[in-house]
Write a protein that binds this DNA or RNA. Structure first.
Lengths: 229, 229
DNA sequence: ACTTAGATTTCGCCG
DNA sequence: CGGCGAAGTCTAAGT
């Protein structure tokens, strides 16, 4: 990885056009060809001011002179990042070797897996029939049956937005076309609910259940929050 | 800005839990308190492996010893980034001073502005009534009237997805509740249309019009593409 | 190669 | 401060 600190201006043209006035910035060039421009503040926090993902071509390869140009083919057009260097303050390269990937735990997939193991957390007597139940517009996360044998389609989200409600409604439309599942009801399960989602869900007769990984894993008492009827 | 290169392991607990095995990585600490962990490759390109946005507390402040802990209050819980340093390879700080913001040109706001100036690009005789026409669930981008005086609600997107169609349909539902605009029709304008969006738009009787900034600005001939009827 | 959906999305705007 | 919607979203997975 190469780290260049320089007083410079930056111009980008591609999907849009941007310009950065002269200031001291960090130019970060990763081994894979990723190129990024960072400032110390300026509103953006975790996102670079400008960037280009591989495959990139950087000119020139050697000492940074007055100008660095990064290019990339993007369909029929070309993306160009043009850096005018006014003063070079630092230029170091570090060999960082191989890096193993990031292990994650707690994303939506885990939530779905836990709910598949304990569907009763979403309603008394619920039994799992299938994960990823196919419809012709995509799979519903969980398909269950309740105590009375009724079908229940379940959509799982980390954060439930208005779009999640619409998505489940679309699935239900399709599922109910089949006489065998014509009376299927819908449940939206999420760690967090946006108010608009709750409002729309009520109008669409979707039941909402707030869940948490800790509770599902039995680390906490299940203080189930049910919205709507 | 402080740049630390070190062989280290990283553990994060917060909204989820992650772990990074021992390897050489870049620790980037911005003046505003943003903390990031970078590797040279590893799949992720423009996103850090781990990060924490301000306000953060970093312990300790001085020389990085065997351990660096970054903390942040996040509602009722706490986010923690714990870095075990096995070997310090570099630790430099650069004063980057003030940096002016990024000037952008070509995003959705521009597209909406151009269409507000030339609504006829979306249909013969269209005249703008108001931008950001308010409904009780949010504003429609453009409200127009056609040659016959009929109302036309227009949603502008850079890329039109199925969600954009749903959004416009929700607006139309509300607009049509008012007898004065009960016959309002809908137009979805975008630079690019996803196939699913076109299919759903046809079913929902939303007209789709492909537009481009260049054409709207008169830099190219308007070779209008109309989808559906 | 293209499309779809999730993300510790991030980020800006407006209430 | 919190909700809402755009983003050069980015990224991974499926087709």
């Amino acid at each position: 990885m190469r780290l260049i600190v320089a007083r410079c201006e930056v111009a980008y043209t591609g999907r849009l056009s941007t310009r950065l006035p002269e200031a001291v910035r960090l130019l970060m060039v990763k081994e894979d060809g990723t190129f990024m421009v960072w400032s110390d503040g300026g509103g953006l926090k975790v996102k670079p001011l400008n960037w280009m993902t591989p495959p990139t071509v950087v000119e020139p390869d050697g000492e940074p002179p007055g100008r660095i140009v990064v290019r990339k083919r993007a369909g029929r057009t070309e993306d160009v990042l043009e850096i005018t260097v006014h003063e070079l303050l630092s230029d170091v390269t570090h060999d960082m070797g191989e890096a193993l990937g990031l292990e994650k735990d707690g994303v939506e997939a885990q939530l779905q897996a836990e709910l598949a193991d304990r569907p009763e957390a979403l309603g008394d007597g619920l039994r799992l029939v299938r994960r990823e139940w196919a419809t012709d517009i995509g799979p519903v996360d969980l398909m269950c049956r309740d105590e009375g044998g009724g079908w229940v389609a379940i959509e799982v989200k980390r954060v439930a937005t208005i779009d999640a409600v619409e998505q489940l409604v679309r699935y239900l439309e399709r599922i109910r076309l089949d006489p065998a599942t014509a009376s299927c009801t819908g449940v939206l399960a999420a760690q967090r609910f946006k108010p608009q989602a709750l409002t729309l869900a009520r109008a669409r007769r979707i039941r909402c259940v707030e869940v948490s990984l800790e509770e599902l894993r039995g680390e906490r008492e299940p203080e189930l929050t049910l919205f709507g009827a």
